[in-house]
């Protein structure tokens, strides 16, 4: 069956109401209010503008509450009021394009990178990236994992293979200990501490795995599509001798965990 064509009047009405509910632009707001009587009837107690306001006063709190729940650390860092101001600007710039509120924060990073030009921009971006990774891990797909058993007899073939990391896995290089700060309300500020994390899905929730710098670089190169031997070469080229030594001593454990935790998928 062919998809039906919407009536022209329906398109016009829905475009008007959608804008009338969401707009923050004062000129558009005034226009929407002025036009409300053209589109909407009045009731015994409320005129068309007041009826429209019921929907406006539902839309914004619903979206802002969802973002507050998804980014509790960012809210704490920015302060309640400031958080809601910035998130209102964000939703204005990036209206939701998903059926679920779970995806509401998916464009927050690009927004913060361009719009949030405050002194703490670097911290805010890092914190938002961490919190989004924990959310994303919980609902992103899990693809069939690479089965290494076939390659036990042929390790050379293994080094030639190209992989992709699971879509739900995010590799993070943090300069603050956000996880500890978020989980402890009594800490005023996060501790400055460089750390490398893999955030991934496990049992329908997110898990965090601490990596060495070398492990982080190696997984990054693997995800770019380099065959294993080249990924190792590239990762080690960026390490100091001491870092290389640490990475070398943990490489076997990392590979074992990577396979066991099903992070690798075969690149098609």
């Amino acid at each position: 069956m062919h998809p039906p064509k919407p009536p022209a009047s329906l398109i016009k009405t829905q475009q008007w109401l959608s804008t009338a509910i969401r707009t923050l632009d004062p000129i558009q707001r005034e226009l929407a209010d002025a036009e409300s009587g053209h589109y909407l009837t009045r009731s015994t107690f409320l005129d068309s503008q007041e009826r429209l306001k019921i929907y406006i006063s539902d839309y914004w709190p619903r979206c802002l509450d969802a973002l507050e729940a998804d980014f509790p650390g960012l809210r704490r860092w920015m302060g309640n009021e400031n958080f809601r101001i910035w998130m209102t600007s964000y939703l204005d710039a990036y209206p939701s394009r998903s059926f679920t509120l779970s995806h509401l924060g998916q464009d927050l990073l690009p927004f913060l990178k361009t719009a949030y030009t405050q002194r703490d921009q670097a911290q805010v971006i890092e914190l938002a990236r961490y919190e989004w990774a924990t959310l994303f891990a919980a609902f992103a797909p899990h693809k069939p994992a690479f089965n290494s058993k076939k390659y036990h007899q042929d390790p050379k073939a293994l080094t030639q293979m190209r992989f992709r990391l699971q879509p739900h896995l995010s590799l993070l290089h943090l300069t603050y200990d956000w996880p500890t700060w978020i989980s402890n309300d009594t800490l005023k500020k996060p501790k400055k501490k460089e750390c490398y994390l893999a955030i991934f899905q496990q049992n329908d929730y997110f898990e965090s795995y601490t990596l060495t710098k070398g492990g982080y670089l190696l997984l990054t190169e693997i995800d770019k599509g380099y065959p294993l031997h080249l990924a190792i070469e590239k990762a080690f080229s960026e390490l100091t001798p001491k870092e290389a030594q640490t990475t070398e001593s943990t490489l076997q454990t990392l590979f074992k965990d990577t396979v066991q935790l099903q992070w690798l998928t075969k690149r098609v």
């Binding site: 919407p6 929907y55 209206p95």
Partner: peptide, 25 residues
């Protein structure tokens, strides 16, 4: 109902105009 238009979601259940054209659509 409708919940969004032009690709944007309103995360609400919005009413429709009760017209014959809408019925058919």
């Amino acid at each position: 109902c409708w919940a969004g238009v032009g690709g944007a979601h309103m995360h609400n259940l919005l009413p429709l105009p009760y017209t014959q054209e809408t019925v058919e659509y």
